[in-house]
Nucleic acid binder design. Structure first.
Length: 804
DNA sequence: GTTTAGGGTTCG
C-alpha cells in the first residue's frame, strides 16, 4: 500500500497506524532506528518522475516540517526524500506540491547534495513493500491575504481518514427541483458573483447566482468568515455547496449558508484542473464529483454563459467601457482617505495615453520609479471607498483580478494631488468606483492559476526592470563610449578575438538588422547572464544524437546506487573476469567493515594492471567516489538476472579520480564486456572503456546565455561551442574541481560585477555568429553565438585584493 | 443551530 490518501468524509478507518511514532526531521541521523517511525512534512518541491532502464522509476521530493514538535529546533527543517518504483509512480500521480505527507518504512542515507542544497545532511529512501506515504490532500494556496496560517490546518491529519474507507454519500439536488425550507447539497455554474463584504452582523457576506442543466438561475447568499467564502475568479467557475438551506424570497428560491456549510470551486474550463479551490481543511471528491464537474463544464460551454473574453488586457481597453483586468501590482500609494492608487501592468501596452498620477515618494509602497520602458506599460488605477480597505492588504508583486474597472476618457481630477498632465490631453484614467454593483472589487489570484501563468508568460517578454536606463550618470557611462566611434584598441578590452575574419566592428543594432549566416565583430558590455548558478550551466552533450541534458542531481544518482545495491542478488561473473572483495571505505573507524565485490579483467591482472580497471558492485555513490582515489577506473555494476550489468545510464558509468563519465541513454547499447586492451596501449581511458561497454560517451559542455549591450541595443547570445576557449577551462574540469569553477566565477564576476551599473562593466571584443536553428523553421528566429573569443583579463578584481 | 442580505455601474 504505497500511497495512502486521506481526505474528508469517512468514519473511523485507516489513519496513520497507531504503532508508528513521529520523529522530528531535525533529529534524523544515519544511526536513527527507523522501524515504526514516521516523518511528516509539507511537499515543498516535487521533481519529475525519472524512468530507469531497468524498468524502474525514481522520484525526488523535498518535504518541510511545518509544525516542528516542541523538542526540535525553531526553524522549519527540510529533507530530501527519494522514492522508488510503484511508490514513486503513485506519489507522482497523487501528491502535489503543498500537500502534507507522512512517510514510513524508510531508510536513512547520507544526502550527497547537502553542500549544494543546504538541506538536511541525510535523505530518506523509500522503496519496497514496507515503505508508505500517507498524504493529506490540501487545497491550492489560499487567495485571501488574511487566510489562516498553514499551521492552523496542519493538525488535521489525525482527524482524517482514508479514502479507501467508505465515505458518506452526498446527493445533489438539481436547481430546478429545489423545495423551500430544506437543507441540500447542490452543484452549479456561476453566472454572477460579488466579492465578500463586511455585513452588519458577525460575518462577511457575498452573493452569487448559479445555474445548471435545469436552466434555473438561483441566487445564493453566503455568510461566513472571509476565508471560507467561495473562491470564485470568473463567471463560468463551477461551485459545489454542501449544506445550504433553501429559502423563498420574492417568489423565487434562494440558497443561504446553513450550519456546517462547505464549498468547493472548480475551474469552469473544459478539461481544466480538478483541483478544487477551498479553505476547507478536509474535503472529499471522488470520481462521481469529477464527472459532475465535467458534465457541467461541457454543458456550460454550449450555453454562452461565459463571456467570450473574460478579461481584457490593457492593450484592448476601450474608453468608457467597464472591464475585468488581470494584472500584477507593482506599487501602491494612498491618495486620501477615500482613494488609493494602484500601479499595475499586464505586459501589454495600452494604445491610449494613460493618466499620470504624481504621489509623494515616501507614501509609496514598492518602487517609486521605473525604467522608461516599464513606465510606458504601467496603468494607474484609482480605487475608491470600500475598495481602499481591501487595497491596504495588497502587496506589490501580487497578481490581481480587478472586476468592473472603468476606463474613463478625458480629463479627470485626482483627489489630493493633481495630475501633471494637461486636462486637455486625451488620456484614459482607470477607476474602481465605490460599491459592489456588478461584482465590482479586487481579488488576489494564486500563482498557480492559469490566468497568472499566462500573464507571466506575456511578462517574460520584457526584461527585468533594473532601472539602468533611469540613472542619468549611468546612461552617460554607456553613451559616452559609443563603440562605433572608437578606434580599435582605444578602449581596454577584457576579451580578444582569435578568429581570422576581416570584419569591421559593428553595433548590436546593425547585427540585429543583418541576415543570419554571417559573422560579426562587436564591442560590447555584459549586461546580465544566465544561469547564475554554475552547475546549471554545465550540461551533458551527445555528439551522436546532438541532444543536451542536465547533469543528473547527486541525490538521484545516489538513489540509483542504493537501488542497484539492494537488487544485487547472486551473480555469476563473466568468464573473462576474476572476482574478489574489497573493504568498503567507512567513516566511523569502530563500525564493522562491509566488503564489496569486485571483478577484474584476467588479462589486465596478468599484465599487472590490476588497479587499472575494476567493476565494482554494491557500493554507494559516496563509497564509489572514495574508492576512485585508489583505482584508475571504476565501473559500477549490479546484478541483473544473474549477470553483471551496468547501472542505469542516468548514473555515471565510469569514475576516474574526481572525474565521472556519463553515457547517452538513447545512443548506447550498454553491456559489461572486457575492454580489449590492445598491446602497446599505455593507458586505459574513458574512450576505450566506453567503446568496450557499448556506451556512447556524453561530453560535458558549458552553456550560458549572455545579454550583451552597447550604445545601440541589447542582444541575447549563447556561449556554448567556444565556451571552453572563452574561459580557458575544460567543462570536464569544471564538473570535477573547484579551481576550474573558480575561474568561471571570477571571470563572470569581473565581466558583470554584482555592484554598479552596466555602464561600468568592462568592454569585450567579441566575434559573433548569427544563425537559424535547423529545426526551427517556423519560428524563423535568429540565434547568436560567441565564437573565437577569449577572456584576457579575468581577474581585475584581484589587483587590489592585497591590503597591507 | 441566531444575525447578517436580498446583484443591476459612475462624486472622484
Amino acid at each position: 500500500m504505497p500511497v495512502c490518501v486521506f481526505s474528508e468524509g469517512a468514519g473511523p478507518g485507516a489513519q496513520v497506524p497507531a504503532h508508528l511514532t513521529r520523529i522530528p526531521i531535525a533529529l534524523i541521523t544515519t544511526s536513527t532506528d527507523c522501524s515504526n517511525k514516521t516523518v511528516k512534512g509539507k511537499v515543498v518541491k516535487k521533481c519529475p518522475l525519472v524512468s530507469l532502464a531497468s524498468d524502474n522509476v525514481i522520484l525526488k521530493t523535498v518535504i518541510q516540517e511545518e509544525d516542528s514538535p516542541p523538542n526540535s529546533s525553531s526553524q522549519s527543517p527540510s529533507i530530501n526524500v527519494i522514492l522508488f518504483g510503484a511508490l514513486a509512480k503513485d506519489f507522482n500521480q497523487t501528491v502535489n506540491q503543498g500537500d502534507v505527507v507522512v512517510a514510513s518504512g524508510f531508510t536513512v542515507g547520507k544526502s550527497p547534495t547537502v553542500h549544494k542544497d543546504k538541506l538536511h545532511p541525510c535523505n530518506l529512501l523509500l522503496s519496497g513493500d514496507d515503505a508508505c506515504i500517507y498524504v493529506t490532500l490540501l487545497p491550492p494556496p489560499l487567495l485571501d491575504p488574511r487566510s489562516p496560517p498553514a499551521a492552523k490546518r496542519s493538525s488535521a491529519l489525525s482527524a482524517e481518514v482514508s479514502r479507501a474507507t467508505k465515505a458518506p454519500k452526498y446527493t445533489y439536488v438539481r436547481l430546478g427541483d429545489l423545495k423551500p425550507g430544506t437543507v441540500v447539497n447542490v452543484y452549479g455554474v456561476v453566472v454572477f458573483f460579488k466579492q465578500p463584504f463586511k455585513s452588519r452582523g458577525t460575518d462577511f457576506c457575498s452573493s452569487l447566482k448559479i445555474t445548471d442543466q435545469s436552466n434555473q438561475k438561483i441566487g445564493c447568499t453566503i455568510f461566513c468568515q472571509l476565508e471560507d467564502h467561495p473562491k470564485i475568479f470568473q463567471i463560468g467557475d463551477i461551485i459545489r455547496f454542501h449544506r445550504v438551506k433553501t429559502q423563498s424570497f420574492n417568489n423565487s428560491i434562494t440558497l443561504v449558508t446553513s450550519f456546517g456549510f462547505s464549498v468547493l470551486v472548480f475551474d469552469g474550463a473544459e478539461g481544466g484542473s480538478m483541483e478544487p479551490r477551498t479553505s476547507s481543511r478536509s474535503f472529499h471528491i471522488d470520481q462521481e464529483d469529477r464527472q459532475t464537474v465535467e458534465e457541467l463544464r461541457s454543458w456550460a460551454a454550449k450555453q454562452a454563459l461565459v463571456p467570450p473574453v473574460p478579461t481584457i488586457p490593457l492593450s484592448a481597453v476601450s474608453p468608457k467601457a467597464y472591464f475585468d483586468l488581470t494584472c500584477q501590482l507593482l506599487a501602491k500609494a494612498p491618495i486620501d482617505t477615500t482613494c488609493t492608487l494602484l500601479r499595475v501592468w499586464d505586459g501589454t501596452r495600452c494604445p491610449h495615453t494613460l493618466l499620470n498620477v504624481i504621489v509623494e515618494r515616501n507614501v509609496t509602497e514598492g518602487p517609486t520609479s521605473f525604467s522608461q520602458e516599464r513606465e510606458s506599460l504601467i496603468a494607474n488605477i484609482l480605487v475608491y471607498d470600500n475598495h481602499t480597505e481591501f487595497a491596504r492588504q495588497l502587496k506589490p508583486g501580487d497578481f490581481l483580478r480587478i472586476y468592473n474597472l472603468r476606463a474613463i476618457p478625458g480629463s479627470s481630477k485626482v483627489p489630493g494631488l493633481t495630475s501633471s498632465q494637461s486636462e486637455e490631453v486625451d488620456h484614459l484614467a482607470f477607476h474602481l468606483h465605490g460599491g459592489t454593483a456588478y461584482g465590482r472589487g479586487i481579488r488576489v489570484l494564486p500563482e498557480n492559476s492559469p490566468a497568472v501563468q499566462e500573464l507571466k508568460r506575456v511578462m517574460e517578454a520584457f526584461p527585468e526592470d533594473d532601472k539602468d536606463e533611469l540613472n542619468d550618470s549611468e546612461m552617460l557611462d554607456i553613451w559616452s563610449t559609443p563603440p562605433e566611434f572608437l578606434e580599435a584598441g582605444a578602449v581596454e578590452c577584457s576579451t580578444e578575438r582569435s578568429c581570422g575574419h576581416d570584419t569591421q566592428l559593428v553595433t548590436l543594432s546593425e547585427v540585429k538588422r543583418s541576415d543570419p549566416g554571417r559573422v560579426h565583430h562587436v564591442r560590447v558590455q555584459l549586461r546580465s547572464y544566465e544561469p547564475r548558478r554554475l552547475h546549471q550551466a554545465l550540461k551533458l552533450y551527445c555528439s551522436k544524437c546532438t541532444s543536451m541534458q542536465d547533469v543528473p542531481d547527486d541525490e538521484l544518482v545516489a538513489g540509483l546506487f542504493s537501488e542497484a545495491f539492494k537488487d544485487s542478488g547472486p551473480c555469476s561473473p563473466p568468464p573473462w573476469a576474476v572476482s574478489g572483495r574489497v573493504n568498503a571505505p567507512g567513516d566511523s573507524p569502530g563500525s564493522p567493515k562491509r566488503t564489496l565485490s569486485v571483478h577484474m579483467s584476467t588479462q589486465l591482472m596478468s599484465e599487472d594492471k590490476s588497479k587499472e580497471l575494476i567493476f565494482l558492485m554494491g557500493s554507494t555513490l559516496e563509497e564509489t567516489r572514495r574508492l576512485a582515489a585508489g583505482y584508475r577506473n571504476i565501473v559500477p555494476v549490479m546484478s541483473s538476472a544473474g549477470h553483471l550489468a551496468l547501472l542505469d545510464l542516468l548514473a555515471p558509468f565510469l569514475f576516474r579520480g574526481r572525474k565521472t563519465y556519463y553515457g547517452c541513454k538513447r545512443c548506447s547499447e550498454a553491456a559489461v564486456r572486457e575492454p580489449s586492451c590492445a598491446e602497446g596501449v599505455e593507458m586505459i581511458d574513458e574512450k576505450i572503456i566506453a567503446q568496450a561497454l557499448g556506451v556512447q560517451l556524453l561530453q560535458f559542455v558549458l552553456l550560458m546565455n549572455l545579454q550583451l549591450q552597447d550604445a545601440t541595443d541589447t542582444l541575447d547570445v549563447f556561449l556554448w561551442r567556444d565556451a571552453e576557449a572563452f574561459f580557458g577551462v575544460l567543462a570536464e574540469d569544471v564538473a570535477a574541481n573547484q579551481e576550474a569553477q573558480n575561474i568561471i566565477h571570477q571571470t563572470m564576476d569581473s565581466l558583470c560585477p554584482a555592484e554598479g551599473s552596466t555602464g561600468g562593466h568592462p568592454w569585450m571584443d567579441l566575434c559573433l555568429t548569427a544563425y537559424r536553428a535547423e529545426d526551427d523553421e517556423e519560428q524563423n528566429q535568429t540565434y547568436y553565438q560567441i565564437c573565437h573569443s577569449t577572456v584576457t583579463k579575468p581577474f581585475s578584481a584581484q589587483s587590489n585584493a592585497n591590503p597591507a
